[in-house]
Design a protein around this nucleic acid. Structure first.
Length: 430
RNA sequence: UCCUCAGUAGCUCAAUGGUAGAGCAUUCGGCUGUUAACCGAAGGGUUGUAGGUUCGAGUCCUACCUGAGGAGCCA
């Protein structure tokens, strides 16, 4: 007898099949048992009639708690009363493990309780839908770069020094040395870009900032492309293409999950290139006109990002920030040395920054000077400076935060639902 | 780090300073088509912790603990 998955159940109409999964919910009506079986690909209602089973066997079904695991053999049939259009008429079954007192009931729960039970919460339909979309986003990122001749070269997670010197890093022991968990693969990407031309890395990133907001996780995933010879404008095109590609993929393949989340799909369909491109100068004027206290030279605050991103249907690209508020490696604009050739992409609907990137300094002495200005010792950057001595070329890239993109696409209020086991400021369990 | 709010049954929440309750979950009983099924019954509590005010505190006060929301910082 074929073992099948719920997502393919329509191919087996009228046939006897085996399903394996977990009890999502159970209802009984005297001589009938309705078991909603969940198998990771979908949920199907399975029906057992008392008269078809020995009494002691039927009693087993009556005692099944939520999330008990079992194997069911039965006949697939169409039924208009079933949400999925199909039902399974149970002929035989085997309880693999009978579960009692599953903590998450089909009623409402608070966030704190659900986070404490995150390992179980993942089984609920909403969390399942979000993580399926996350997977689609990640797959789209890989396909986008792979299809364009990029090479995936992953960068290390243990790093010997505080790369950018800006954010607080997690410190850890490394035998008799101190190591830090990476905050970005970008510096290493610059080395691999000089070896492969077009590269990207895709891994976890760690920030020990004591940020307690819906937009922050201590551990999050970034995809970071880096392209030798690329200009800022080419990088902006690459970022815009990536975002459009991800949306097309999710709309084409994960519409059912968006509907489970009751996402306004129209807002995603309206996203189209070319994205509005605003210089920092223009952005400041727009913000000042709308009442922001921002002055030229300051970085955009969270509220500023929200105001800007709510003005457009598509993500907005803000470029050429003051060099002083950006990292040491940012290439200054040859026309105006006080601004950097960088770009932030702000997602619409108030979601704020999803991408940050720009052109990197490729002149050795300029970079050395910037290190000094940022009070960074040049010794740990020996290898990084080498890249400016042996065939330096202009190059650029960006980093995109996966969780923020998923939160925007799913229209979530908090980043913690976009990753299976979020690491937040005051929670590292489970 | 700062500000605000909240901790009562396994969960979600009630309870004017005066006997601590409901729904869901659990257990038992009923029902051949249920859709967060329904109907009946039962069990379930050191009201976050420690002090204090009061004849009397879940309720008021103080400290602490835990969590949530926001700010700053950041992607």
């Amino acid at each position: 007898m074929p073992v099948v998955y719920v997502e393919n159940i329509g191919d087996w109409e009228g046939k006897e099949v085996t399903l394996r999964g977990w009890v999502y919910n159970r209802r009984s009506s005297g001589k009938l048992q309705f078991i909603l079986l969940r198998d990771g690909t979908g949920v199907i209602q399975c029906v057992a009639f008392k008269g078809n089973f020995p009494p002691e066997e039927f009693a087993l079904l009556d005692a099944l708690g939520q999330e008990s695991s079992l194997e069911i053999h039965g006949v697939v049939r169409t039924d208009s009363r079933s949400p999925g259009g199909f039902e399974l008429d149970i002929r035989r079954f085997r309880v693999i493990q009978a579960a009692d007192n599953y903590p998450i009931t089909p009623k409402e729960h608070g966030t704190s309780f659900l986070m404490e039970n995150r390992h179980l919460w993942l089984r609920s339909s909403r969390q399942h839908a979000i993580l399926k979309i996350r997977h689609e986003v990640i797959r789209a990122c890989r396909d986008y770069f792979d299809d364009r001749g990029f090479t995936l070269v992953d960068t290390p997670i243990f790093t010997p020094n505080a790369c950018e010197g800006t954010t607080t890093l997690f410190e850890t022991g490394y035998f008799d040395q101190t190591a830090y968990l990476t905050q970005s693969g970008q510096l290493y990407n610059e080395a691999t870009a000089a070896a492969f031309g077009k590269v990207y890395c895709f891994g976890p990133t760690f920030r020990a900032e004591k940020s307690k907001t819906r937009r922050h996780l201590m551990e999050f995933w970034m995809v970071e492309p880096e392209v030798a010879f690329a200009t800022l404008e080419e990088t902006m095109d690459l970022a815009e293409g990536l975002v459009c590609f991800i949306l097309e993929r999710v709309l084409a393949r994960r519409r059912a999950q968006l509907e489970i989340l009751e996402r306004d799909i129209g807002a995603l369909v309206r996203v189209a290139g070319p994205f509005p491109r605003l210089s920092y100068d223009e952005a400041v004027k727009v913000l000042q006109a709308s009442g922001s206290a921002i002055e030229w030279g300051g970085d955009l605050g969270g509220g500023d990002e929200t105001v800007l991103s709510e003005r457009y249907d598509s993500p907005v690209m803000v470029h050429r920030y003051p060099a002083a508020v950006k990292a040491f490696y940012m290439q200054p604009d040859p026309e105006r040395a006080e601004v950097a050739l960088c770009v932030d992409v702000l997602a619409p609907e108030g979601y704020g920054e999803i991408i940050g990137g720009g052109a990197r300094i490729h002149d050795h002495d300029l970079l050395l000077g910037r290190l000094a200005e940022h009070a960074l010792s040049p010794e740990p950057f020996g290898w990084y400076l080498d890249l400016r001595k042996y065939g330096a070329v202009p190059h650029a890239g960006f980093g995109m935060g996966i969780e923020r993109v998923v939160a925007w696409i799913c229209h979530l209020t908090h980043l913690r639902e976009t990753i299976a086991f979020p690491r937040t400021l005051y929670r590292i369990y489970p």
